[in-house]
Design a binder for these strands. Structure first.
Length: 378
RNA sequence: GUGACCAUAGUUUAAUGGUAGAACUGCGGGUUGUGGUCCCGCUAGUGAGGGUUCAAUUCCCUCUGGUCACCCCA
């Protein structure tokens, strides 16, 4: 029953619904159409590390344009994002047409999917396992030999150029394969042609041509991407590709798009495991007004309203308590400044402000306090 | 879909077929309005249901939840 429901009722990705949206609104949309979308999606699998039943995808797509400039833009955006998050990544790119070229050159077009599945595992399995699996899937001895031989030679390649040369040689008789190679080369050309002042953030060694990258999705027709974080055992945190006819299933054929999707939960896991979250993310308040009694709290209420009006995140401790308790609270919540106001301060119209990092304390009026704290914001 | 392992306080974890112990957190105290260290105290727990037993947190079964891997990755 659960399976029955999950097959029919779960949203598995954002791209297919996006294609439906585009078809439904085709007369209102001006192409090329770009959008981003962040929403939960579901998986009907049993959960395990990095795989949740519910998780969040952040999709970016451009539909209605064949230009490889779109692929480039998505790569730029991806680099930019992971640089900002301080996550060291490898962006793998491949092209579905190259995979087809492989299959064609090996005479395996009719067994494309099985072949791709093996190719995708090239790094993880031994030759022996590969043979077994191919055998199980019904490949002939001759075919197995051809595949295994090519896997062996592929494994010796290291640089992007070596790999490109290899596939060029391998696919030279396949028209579609050559087209895929050309697309990959064009993308690399674009990347290389970016002027230094704009490509300062581009570290091309982060971008790897990986012809064994397949992606499960069968709607991809051109470029495919996958991003893996370095220094951590975690599946891909980002993936995407070009789809030439996704809208076709909803009745609008031949509208090509390209998109990429970031797995928010896995990215969170990476940030968390690698301790890359900035320390100050839990800083919410800049200033705490201590509460020393009924009269004081009323007095502070007005002052807190004033600091808040000036854009300073302010708290007033919600009940009278020992000073120690309230200072502990400020420490625990990383509140950098505490305003201490008792009968003396009320009388003198001054505010005793304590810097919780240095321990320094001074008396100021409200305007000076606001000035001080505004100077701390940036 | 397959397999392995796990379930004890808010958290991390001990232990036993016979009173479930600790650490951290939280709260209170160490005399008045000055914190982060230290000392003392308090709160709080065996996932649910059934079975075996004089007695089950412990052994058995079912369920639920979780972890990891395979398959798969929409």
């Amino acid at each position: 029953m659960a399976k029955h429901i999950s097959e029919k009722a779960l949203r598995y990705d954002l791209t297919v619904p996006f294609a439906r949206y585009v078809v439904m609104h085709q007369h209102e949309i001006s192409f090329p159409f770009k959008r981003y979308q962040i929403q939960p999606v579901w998986r009907a699998d049993r959960p395990q590390k990095g795989r949740y039943r519910e998780f969040h995808q952040c999709d970016v797509d451009v539909i209605g344009s064949n230009s490889l400039l779109n692929e480039l833009e998505l790569i730029q955006l991806t680099i930019d994002i992971f640089n900002k998050l301080n996550i060291s990544v490898v962006i793998k790119i491949n092209n579905r047409k190259i995979l087809e070229g492989f299959a064609e050159s090996l005479g395996l077009k009719d067994k494309f999917n099985d072949f791709i599945t093996i190719l995708d595992k090239i790094d993880k399995i031994t030759i022996h396992d590969a043979k077994n699996e191919l055998h199980k899937k019904g490949f002939s001895d001759d075919e197995i030999l051809k595949i295994v031989e090519s896997i062996k030679s592929m494994r010796q390649l290291e640089s992007n150029d070596q790999k490109l040369d290899f596939v060029k040689e391998f696919c030279k008789t396949s028209e579609i394969g050559m087209k895929g190679i050309q697309e990959v080369e064009n993308i690399f050309d674009y990347l290389k042609s970016l002027p230094a002042e704009y490509s300062g953030f581009l570290k091309t060694e982060q971008i790897e041509f990986d012809f064994s990258l397949a992606r499960g999705l069968n709607y991809y027709t051109g470029a495919i991407f996958e991003v893996k974080a370095r220094n951590i055992a975690m599946g891909s945190i980002c993936g995407g590709g070009r789809y030439d006819d996704l809208t076709g299933i909803f009745g609008l054929p031949n509208v090509s798009g390209v998109g990429i999707s970031f797995g928010a939960d896995r990215i969170y896991d990476v940030l968390s495991e690698l301790r890359l979250f900035p320390k100050n993310t839990d800083v919410t308040s800049q200033l705490l007004f201590v509460n020393l009694g009924a009269e004081e709290e009323k007095y502070c209420l007005a002052l807190a309203a004033e600091t808040r009006k000036n854009g300073i995140n302010t708290e007033l401790f919600p009940h009278a308590a020992k000073l120690k308790k309230q200072l502990d609270y400020a420490n625990a919540n990383h509140i950098p400044y505490v305003a201490i106001i008792g009968t003396n301060e009320i009388k003198s119209k001054q505010i005793t402000v304590k810097n919780m990092n240095s321990g320094e304390q001074m008396e100021l009026n409200i305007n000076k306090l606001i000035e001080l704290l505004k100077g701390m914001l940036f």
